[in-house]
């Protein structure tokens, strides 16, 4: 899933300062699962905003709405009948959702209520961890199913740097060294011979470095 963190209330209130009537948009997908931008969080944030503004004597009207997805236009279209009644939209979907809403309502100010962070998994209740950077050329078959691009602080492809100590990364003693995980897994799979092979310098054109990416499936187009 895409994991996001909510911005601080202070940051959000600063962005909202000029407005008296806003539409607060949540999303039922990833940000609901990571408990940042779903229906529940829309409710909590709306109360916090209204309370803070009331304290300052600057009342604000907040309409709460949570869409099935903010990354598909048919759902974004659901707010079209009343979007004109609001001065600004505060979206707490991921960065893709926020942008798509902005694209669809060109004359509305669209504000981000979250910081989108990574593609990850739920480790346990309330703990999420990064797993993928969407580099566009997967090497997991070579690295025991552990991604060195996303999980090594230096994205090293041929083994751990000199800062790997007791299974931890030099960057943070709480952070697992990706190469320790890779070596452990290769050993479990009896694939240590894979470690001996040099992985050549990566082609980054499939990643963000090649420019914004777009995928077209001709067979699916109408």
């Amino acid at each position: 899933m895409i994991v996001a963190n909510r911005k601080t209330l202070e940051e959000i209130l600063t962005m909202l300062k000029p407005y008296k009537k806003i539409l607060l948009l949540g999303c039922n997908e990833c940000v609901t699962v990571c408990a940042t931008g779903g229906e529940r969080e829309v409710g909590v944030l709306a109360s916090e905003i209204k309370l803070s503004r009331a304290k300052e004597g600057q009342e604000i009207e907040v309409r709460e709405q949570t869409l099935e997805r903010q990354c598909d236009h048919e759902y974004i279209d659901q707010v079209r009948p009343f979007v004109g009644d609001y001065e600004a939209i505060l979206s707490i979907a991921c960065g893709a959702g926020i942008q798509y809403v902005a694209e669809k309502y060109r004359n509305k100010v669209v504000l981000p209520g979250v910081n989108t962070t990574f593609l990850g998994v739920t480790l346990e209740q309330g703990v999420w961890s990064e797993r993928c950077q969407g580099c566009g050329e997967c090497v997991l078959h070579l690295t025991g199913g552990v991604c060195p691009i996303a999980r090594c602080a230096k994205s090293l492809l041929n083994g751990p740097c000199g800062g790997s100590s007791n299974g931890k990364c030099e960057v943070d003693k709480e952070l697992e060294c990706a190469w320790q995980l890779i070596v452990d897994r290769l050993k479990e799979l009896n694939q240590m011979d894979k470690y001996e092979e040099i992985i050549p310098i990566k082609d980054w054109t499939t990643s963000r470095d090649g420019g914004p990416r777009k995928r077209i499936r001709e067979d699916l187009r109408l």
Binding site: P160, S164, Y195, E196
Partner: peptide, 13 residues
């Protein structure tokens, strides 16, 4: 540095 068992293999690479 760790993992120690691949430190010579790393020099091999």
């Amino acid at each position: 540095a760790d993992p120690f068992e691949i430190r010579a293999a790393r020099l091999g690479k």
